[in-house]
Every structure is written in C-alpha cells, then in structure tokens.
C-alpha cells in the first residue's frame, strides 16, 4: 500500500514555543476512542485550544487567525509521553505536513514518519531564528525540502540541513510502505523462525 508522498513544501508556519509538548496535550486520551484514523484534527491540542464548554480560547495560537500554514514550529522534546499514533494523525488531519523542533521524542518521530508528517530536527539556534522570523512576520515563508534535506527561511535565505533516516526518506519521497518491505522478505522471517 502506498502512503502519502512528501518532497518539499513552502508555506507560512505556526509558532508554539513551549517545551516538552507531550502527546496528551496533542490529543488527550478521552479522544482516543475512535476506531478509525480520521477526524482527530478537531481535537488537536484540545485543552489548550478550547475551554470546558468547547469555546475557542482566544489566547491559543491556533485560534489566532494571524498565524497559519502547514508547518508547526515547537519547543524542544516535542511529542514526549504516550505512544499514541493518534497524535500524528491529529496533526496531519488538522493540516500540518511538517513539525519543526530542536528535539523529538522517539516514538512520536517514528509515528510521524509513518504518516507522511515530517519531523524536522534543527539546532537550538535555528529554532530561535525560526521563532523570531515568524513572530516578526507571521506570513514569513519557510521551505522544508526533504529531497535535499534542508529547511530555509525564504526571505533571509538562512537555512540549515537536517538529518533523516535514508530508508524513511525513500519511503516518504516515494510513498513506500514498511509492511510491503517486510512482506518482500517473508521467506527470511520464516527461515528465522525455523532456526
């Protein structure tokens, strides 16, 4: 089965300069009861985004029409906590194609890559430059290029390379799927079981 293809994007970005954003904030457990992958975007950052009566909290960045775009830029250790893939589904369903941070939790990073949502790890310095650029101009265009592995603030030309596992890069740029890959090696699995 093929998955979503990601090569490069140029878009404005949404800044969320908070550290240690855990997957319970991205999607609280009480919204994990769905049995399909769709619709989680409605509850993305639910308790930061809405009050107890379901009204949007005006001070939360996603409710501020000044900021929009397909990239979320967040503080370090993004996606820590639970293994719930629903966090990656919620971000992608809301409309994000990439998340930028100076540090990602392991399981979240893997889940994002499996869903066509690119985690882009940058240095602390570049993260600060990104926040500064976006707060100075909410329409600042950011380019994320997976093929050549760089992220760029288009207006100033400042850019930084980022790392990505070559296998996962091939999957994302071609829409390959892990299960198809392992199934192609099925005889090795059966041979292993016979050892």
């Amino acid at each position: 089965m093929s998955t979503k293809i990601f090569k490069h994007i140029q878009t404005s970005a949404v800044p969320l300069p908070i550290e240690n954003i855990d997957t319970d904030q991205i999607i609280p457990a009480r919204f994990l009861k769905a049995t399909t992958r769709e619709g989680f975007g409605n509850n993305l950052f639910r308790d930061w985004r809405f009050d107890n009566d379901g009204n949007p909290k005006q001070d939360f960045i996603l409710n501020n029409p000044t900021y929009s775009g397909k990239i979320l830029v967040a503080g370090k250790n993004f996606g820590c906590g639970s293994s719930r893939e629903h966090a990656a589904w919620a971000l992608a369903d809301y409309g994000f194609d990439a998340v930028v941070s100076s540090f990602f939790a392991d399981i979240f990073k893997g889940n994002a890559l499996n869903n066509g949502l690119l985690p882009v790890q940058v240095s602390d310095d570049f993260l600060k430059k990104l926040f500064d650029a976006i707060f100075a101009d909410p329409n600042a265009v950011i380019e994320v290029n997976l093929v050549d592995q760089f992220i760029k603030i288009v207006a100033t030309g400042e850019q930084e390379n980022f790392e990505v596992n070559p296998y996962k890069k091939a999957c994302m740029t071609n829409g390959y799927d892990d299960i198809d890959y392992i199934l192609s090696k099925k005889e090795l699995v059966e041979e292993f079981e016979g050892r």
Partner: peptide
C-alpha cells in the same frame, strides 16, 4: 518497547518490526 498503531499493524502482518538499533 511501545509502538504506534502503524507498527502494531506491521507486527500483526509480519511478527517483525523495522527498527534502528538505539
């Protein structure tokens, strides 16, 4: 270790997991 749902499907389908050695 814990895994996401795409990997749950991977293990169901193959009893294996693609993993980078930490």
């Amino acid at each position: 270790f814990g895994i996401g749902t795409s990997q749950v499907e991977q293990v169901m389908a193959t009893q294996c997991l693609l993993q980078q050695r930490p």
